[in-house]
Simulated assay, not measured.
Amino acid sequence: MNAPCIVFVDNEPGVLNALRRLLRLSHRDWDMHFFSSPVQALDQLDSLTPWVVVADRNMSEMDGIELLGHVADTAPEAIRVLLSGDAQMESAIRATAAAHLVIRKPFEREVIDDLLTRARVLHQLPLSVTLRGRLGQQESLPVLPEVYQQITHVLEQQEPDVAEVAELIRHDQVLLSRVLQLVNSPFFGFNSRTHDVEVAVMRLGLQTIHNLVLIIELYQHNSTVPRALGDRLMRDALLLAEHVGTLADSRGVSRNIRNLAVVSALLHNIGVLLLGADSQEYNIASAYLLELWGFESEVIEAIQHQLDPDLPYDCEPATEILNAAVKLQYGTLNDAIEANGD
């Protein structure tokens, strides 16, 4: 079996030398190639089978966005990563087809370690050759919404502030109205209504509001998703999360396992955003996208195996719960595939 391959392209020799020294000590099992010329890198791609291509944003012969655009055509299976020192460019770049991921410069070694770990997981996903190439050549992948990333930053603090999360939601009137609509809906079953987003955040909890923001932004606040499709994906995700919560409570699992299972339910059909109506492999596409985004391995596993008729004997508890909830909601696994392909 060939060694996993990564290609770095940067016209600063000092950056390439530092990467070479850093990675050849800790990742000797990788086949690494370093190019100071993007043109030379493209010439060599035909003779390589890269799992990852990392390119600097600013290069003289050809900028990183243009280079990665060519990589999408010549090596669609590769994860395309852009190095950028321009904070203002990051959001715009994330929305293009050029890069799957953007890494801000300067970066720590752990960032590259995490990238190589993700690449291994993505390579091991049971994608068909056709689907792997199709995902690699997507004109635009869904991106993690800015407000979701801001809330993530708040939650990473030692003592997350409910008021700060509420203020982030309050700045987006469309998101605010959808959050209040959901918290006041029969789905959550609260006895009294509220029009105060801070109260809504306290009622739902920070983790739940975090995940709700993600699916609202992706399914219902996204101009690239048809309204009817977004509404259906949202409805199915919320209903499945309800089934998952009921099953988790009946089994007496820990709060952490319950949360992982609920997150998996809320995001179980996100692959439909990539595949549209042709969703026979939407579970694998969902796992692919969430791995790119760096979600927990337990969530990736649960979503990957949600349609399996028989689960691996050593699967995580969240995987068992999601798989059972899918059968409960859709009747059969074939029905689940058909429902998400409508």
Rank of each mutant, 00 (worst) to 15 (best):
R20I: 01
Q157T: 15
P312T: 04
L240K: 05
T246W: 02
M59K: 11
D113M: 04
R94D: 05
L214S: 10
L116F: 15
L289P: 11
L307Q: 06
E242M: 05
R57E: 14
V121Y: 12
L68T: 10
S47M: 04
P312R: 01
R232Y: 03
S91V: 06
M32T: 02
V262K: 14
P38A: 07
P226Q: 05
S250I: 01
D114V: 06
G14C: 02
G205D: 09
L42M: 13
L22M: 14
L333M: 12
Q124I: 00
M62W: 04
E316P: 00
V111A: 12
V53P: 06
R21W: 06
N334L: 13
V154G: 04
Q329H: 08
P76Q: 01
G276F: 10
V53M: 01
S286Q: 11
G341T: 08
L141N: 07
L289R: 11
I216K: 01
A302H: 10
D10E: 13
D43R: 13
I215K: 04
S192E: 15
D249E: 14
E139F: 05
Y288M: 05
G252Q: 03
H70L: 07
R80S: 02
E108G: 11
H33Q: 03
L176R: 15
E12I: 10
S264F: 08
H123M: 04
H171N: 12
P317C: 02
E61C: 08
L322T: 04
Q149G: 12
